[in-house]
Amino acid sequence: MVTANAQEVVTDTVKNVVENDSIVFNMQMEEIVISNLKDTISKAERKRLYILRRRVLKVYPYAKIAAERLTRLNATMAKLKTKREKKKYSKIVEKYLEDEFEAQLKKLSRKDGQILVKLIHRQTGETTFDLIKEYKSGWKAFWSSRIAKMFDINLKTEYSPATVPEDYLIEGFLLKAFREHRLPAQDPAFPIDYPAITAQWREKE
């Protein structure tokens, strides 16, 4: 049975999470300069890269907080002893995620959503599909299956800068944004040796 004190502790934990989180939903996008590109690159390609980088800056904060949520969720679940306590905490998380994020996620385009799926894998080490499967209620709220189906987004997509050209570009955009303090840095859940990957791509070219 969940005691009154236990319920208060769980609720306060979630409240503190809410108070300490900060995501800028209306980001002011300043002019982006694509560097390290050949002079012969076409205008259309420059536009494509500009749009990709803009999307990365837009959705990364969601992926970052997803990783933070997973860490806190696991830590709190480990402290709870009964299924009833865990179920109650899961409901609290679900309600918060619905109120805080679902409306914002619905505003994302299909391409925004697919990049978000990749970045969630980068930050958590798990695909969005696996997260929903493992944490049914809370993660279903964070990434509604209705939204994914609406935009035909593959929730099983992984992030692989070493093998996927777009992912390599995304990683470069992220690292540059971290250096320039445009985005708050957060290490990936798995090792990404960007210099080594860059050397591999150059060899392929």
Rank of each mutant, 00 (worst) to 15 (best):
K91S: 14
Y96L: 07
Y89T: 01
K118L: 05
N154S: 07
S90Q: 13
M150V: 01
T128Q: 06
E94G: 05
L105E: 05
D187F: 02
E85T: 00
K79R: 13
A141T: 01
R84F: 13
Q104S: 08
R110A: 14
A185N: 06
K118G: 06
K81I: 06
A177D: 09
G125Q: 02
D187G: 01
Q104N: 11
K91N: 13
R146I: 09
E166Q: 14
E158K: 15
E166T: 14
E180R: 10
R182C: 03
K91G: 05
P195V: 06
A196W: 01
K106T: 10
K140I: 00
T82S: 15
P184I: 04
E98V: 02
D99G: 14
T124A: 06
A177G: 03
D99A: 15
A177W: 07
Q114L: 06
M150I: 05
L105P: 00
Q186S: 08
E85C: 03
E171T: 12
A103I: 04
H121V: 00
S160T: 10
E158G: 01
Q186G: 02
A189P: 05
V117A: 09
L155M: 11
S137K: 15
L119E: 07
S109V: 03
V117C: 05
K79M: 09
A148C: 06
P161E: 11
I192M: 04
I132G: 09
K88C: 02
S109T: 15
P184S: 03
Y159L: 08
A148G: 10
F190L: 08
L131T: 04
A199L: 09
I192V: 14
Y159E: 12
I192Q: 10
L175M: 11
E100V: 04
R84I: 13
V164I: 15
T128A: 12
I147T: 13
E100P: 00
T127M: 09
D99K: 15
Y89P: 04
Y89V: 01
